[in-house]
Write a protein that binds this DNA or RNA. Sequence first.
DNA 1: GTGAACCTTCCCATCATGGGAAGGTCAAGC
DNA 2: GCTTGACCTTCCCATGATGGGAAGGTTCAC
Lengths: 159, 159
Amino acid sequence: MQRAAHSNDGPAGRPLTIGQAARASGVSAKMIRHYESLGLMPRAVRTDSNYRTYGTRELHELRFIRRARELGFSTGQIEALLGLWRNKRRSAASVKALALAHATALEAKLGELERMIETLKHLAGHCHGGERPDCPILTDLASGPRADEQPRPPRARRR
Amino acid sequence: MQRAAHSNDGPAGRPLTIGQAARASGVSAKMIRHYESLGLMPRAVRTDSNYRTYGTRELHELRFIRRARELGFSTGQIEALLGLWRNKRRSAASVKALALAHATALEAKLGELERMIETLKHLAGHCHGGERPDCPILTDLASGPRADEQPRPPRARRR
DNA sequence: GTGAACCTTCCCATCATGGGAAGGTCAAGC
DNA sequence: GCTTGACCTTCCCATGATGGGAAGGTTCAC
């Protein structure tokens, strides 16, 4: 294996293979390749033997991606964030807006989740838990809030 | 189309087509077929012309499924719940246990979500939001808590 | 030089959901 | 009776994040 022409040295002064980059970034090798195929990561510099190599800069980007995924950003959002991060003249306001919008979306999810949990606990609380088969959980599931019924007039199906 | 031999009449005294069942249950026709293919729903009674038909009982089960999905149960869990529901000698305790276990799992998710939101808001709060490109959100993303690095000794890569 | 560990690409799977094509069926209106 | 439009059927493909695994090439330490 020959050293790649580009200077993309890693922390120890030499480029890393994808496996090393994976261990160092917390992003699996599979996902690193996947992000490259999505265009989230630039095409990796290859060695003569076609191995991908990663330097310090790429390592930072991979950690950036992992951290953003942990915070629940979608790949689309991460792409935007990465663009802002890479762009020297980015506006801090855009980043803040993106983060806040995301926080708001997550709060909506949070509310839903809270309602789901509350319902479940309510139902469980009214279930005596014995062997008698009349647990209200099932009754509720079977007859709970129903969808809008018959939004259009049911097509006559007399036969 | 001939009336199917089975008695699976709907609310109006006659069986429904899949589209009508979909509208009445809030589960899309696509998903009804899918649930049938998964074995979650029994194979539907067909008319002579191979149309699926649905009666009151099936309608109830479909609503049951929709409601359970809304409460975040996985199809596997729904299968278990449906089994309990269909089984006359089911134990209310099993249902309660399933519901509570699910609630606990959801609470874990809730905690995660809360942490994510808190982090996002914290970061956004420290971002002045102007045009200067030093928003701490990006800095944090780029250098936040990192994965366990080098769990195994890095294979020597001198070249 | 051999074996282990690593890399490459390619295909398949998950899970819940939906889009859409090609073709059959039904009821209503003329 | 025939047309029309809404409905049904099956089959295949797509999503999005992730992983499994096969077949084959590369590197390195012994």
